Amino acid sequence: MAALDDIEPRLRVLMLAGLAGEAGPYRRLLDELSGLLRAYYARRAPPGIDAEDLVQETLIAVHTRRATYDAGQPFTAWAYAIARYKLIDALRRGRAHLRAPAEEADALFVPAGAEAAMAARDLERVMASLPARTRELIRDVKVVGLSTREAAQKHGMSETAVKVAVHRGLKSLGGKYGGSIAHED
């Protein structure tokens, strides 16, 4: 099997080609995905649950829900979510228990960093309502880790203006999403 870092780009390209109506790449996607799913379910499906049935259910779900795939996001994270829900459904139907701790359920075939990609996607959605400069400042100071001084130099602003913009942006998000902001000195 290919290295995990190679899987995401390859599967994503095949999925996009399939969405564009190319049957050959889409068939290769389903073939490769079926092998990854077999390995995933073999490690996680308890006795009494047919892993091959789960593979087929997941492939059908990927096919029927392919229009919901957001081309700007990692394909493996999207497919993983479907696989995970199919496993949970099977466990509920069979009243079975996982052989592996639930914490390990995130290790389908998602490359390292996929969780970070999902968090980045969620962060972008949350911050989309903010003005572009405020988004950039919050990202630079709170995500990237630039100091207020570095962000001020980067954006041609005073340190005070950066602090105020970041504070107001976070306060706006807190009001919208029910959170609170951490005050820094």
Rank of each mutant, 00 (worst) to 15 (best):
I49D: 00
A96F: 03
R93D: 15
A100R: 15
G113N: 02
R99H: 14
L54H: 00
V55N: 00
L54P: 07
A114F: 04
A100I: 14
A116W: 13
V110I: 11
A116L: 15
A77Q: 10
A90F: 03
A51M: 06
Y80N: 02
A102F: 09
W78A: 02
G48A: 07
A81H: 09
W78E: 01
Y69T: 03
L87I: 11
P47R: 07
G113D: 00
H97K: 13
L87H: 08
V110D: 03
I88R: 13
I82D: 12
R66I: 09
G72D: 10
A79D: 09
F75I: 04
A45S: 10
P46D: 10
A119V: 15
E115M: 12
P111S: 04
P111V: 06
A81Q: 12
Y69F: 15
I82A: 08
I60T: 06
A71T: 12
T76W: 04
A71Y: 08
G72F: 07
A83W: 05
A112G: 11
A100W: 10
R84S: 13
D70Y: 06
Q56G: 00
E104R: 04
G94M: 05
E115G: 15
L87Q: 01
P111K: 02
P46E: 07
A61T: 11
Y80W: 14
D106Q: 08
A116H: 13
Q73D: 12
D106C: 11
A117L: 13
I60Y: 05
D89R: 07
A102P: 11
L59G: 04
T76Q: 03
H97Q: 14
A67N: 13
F75C: 12
T64W: 08
P101S: 09
A71I: 13
D50I: 01
A119H: 14
R99A: 12
R99M: 11
T64F: 09
I49K: 00
R65Y: 10
T68G: 12
E104K: 04
F75A: 13
Q73L: 15
M118S: 15
L54M: 02
A51N: 05
R66T: 02
V62H: 02
T58G: 00
L108A: 15
A102C: 06
T64K: 11
L54S: 01
A61N: 09
F109E: 05
R65H: 12
A77L: 08
H97W: 10
F75N: 07
A117D: 13
A67T: 11
A79Y: 05
E115A: 13
V62N: 00
Q73S: 13
A102N: 03
D53W: 00
M118D: 13
Y69Q: 03
Y69I: 06
Y69D: 03
L98Q: 03
D89T: 04
V62Y: 08
D70L: 12
A79E: 09
A45Y: 02
A61F: 03
A100C: 15
A117M: 07
A117C: 07
G94V: 03
T76K: 02
L91C: 06
Y80G: 11
Y80H: 09
E52A: 04
Y41W: 04
T64V: 14
G48M: 09
E115L: 14
P74L: 00
A83E: 09
E104A: 11
